[in-house]
């Protein structure tokens, strides 16, 4: 009897049978080292974004007149900038700004891109052709140039930077989603649904989208990474969040003039951007490995 218990891991059989698909993802993330670490790092970054303002040691917009351009010290851990503001506090506040812009921009891309991609794939014909040609035209412009044009038209602000980045990444997302949706469209259960007489919208929402959800999760994660880079780039050239809002790209741009005298001004925002983007991409990569072990 004990022999039997050893050879057949009862618990794992039980779990395999009972685990619902929606918890499967979390289980799989915990099983892979890369996925696990990047997932926890991401959670940590999000946590900082949420509680940043409370743990920040100083007011991010307050000028300390006795401490212009001071190097890292016990009072100002990461130093102060050219007008005497605490860099650590600005970074902590900035996490929230950057994450909000990136997540909202990606949400925009996700909703519009999924809608365009899935309807285009499902309806086919002229609608598909027209939509995809429009996407091709938008895709022909590099994303950042398109975003620049949109911000230039709307005026520089944090919200407009978000809208610009969201719109600029829609074409790439829509085309990826369309490709995935096309394979599902050809499957037997979509045809079965049509033979039953379900409406197109019902089929899109209940059959198509759940079956491409894996791909949607991976792509959205990847797009959050690009959105963070895009936000910082717009901030760097002064078209993102306006001063004195603490934004990483803006901080980087303020620091670049003093690289020789005060390395900490540009280094820490740069590091922050690098770490966050790296984490997001690593998580996206790990998710792709989980969903598609073949590639």
């Amino acid at each position: 009897m004990s022999e039997l218990n050893k050879t057949i891991p009862v618990r794992s059989i039980w779990r395999k049978e009972r685990s619902l698909p929606r918890f499967e993802l979390l289980n799989k993330i915990m099983q892979k080292r890369k996925a696990k670490y990047s997932f926890f790092m991401m959670l940590g970054i999000i946590l900082i974004g949420i509680i940043g303002p409370w743990i920040a040691p100083h007011d991010p917009t307050k000028t300390y007149y006795e401490a212009f351009m001071q190097g890292p010290s016990a009072e100002f851990w990461l130093g102060t900038d050219a007008i005497g503001r605490d860099i650590l506090s600005r970074l902590l506040y900035g996490t929230r700004v950057t994450l909000t812009v990136a997540v909202l921009a990606s949400a925009m891309t996700f909703v519009a891109g999924t809608l365009i991609g899935v309807t285009s794939a499902y309806l086919g014909g002229i609608f598909d052709n027209v939509m995809m040609r429009i996407m091709d035209v938008l895709l022909a412009l590099p994303g950042i140039v398109l975003a620049l044009a949109i911000v230039a038209a709307l005026g520089p602000s944090q919200e407009n930077a978000m809208i610009a980045i969201g719109i600029a990444s829609i074409p790439g997302f829509a085309i990826l989603v369309r490709g995935a949706a096309l394979t599902i469209k050809g499957s037997g259960y979509v045809e079965a649904s049509r033979s039953i007489g379900s409406s197109n919208w019902w089929i899109i929402i209940n059959q198509l989208i759940p079956n491409i959800s894996n791909i949607l999760i991976v792509y959205t994660t990847m797009f959050i990474g690009s959105a963070i880079l895009g936000t910082s780039a717009l901030g760097f050239i002064g078209l993102g969040a306006q001063p004195p809002t603490p934004e990483w790209g803006t901080m980087l741009s303020e620091g670049k003039d003093y690289l020789r005298e005060a390395w900490w001004l540009a280094t820490f925002p740069g590091l922050a951007i690098t770490i966050v983007v790296f984490t997001v991409y690593m998580l996206g990569d790990a998710l792709r490995d989980i969903f598609d072990p073949k590639s």
Binding site: S187, Y189, A192, S198, S199, N206
Partner: peptide, 22 residues
Amino acid sequence: NPFDTLNPKLTIQHILTEPLIA
């Protein structure tokens, strides 16, 4: 092909209710 014509993301309950909803 019964392996291809049932949506893998839906429960049987859901699959059988579909014609009734439609």
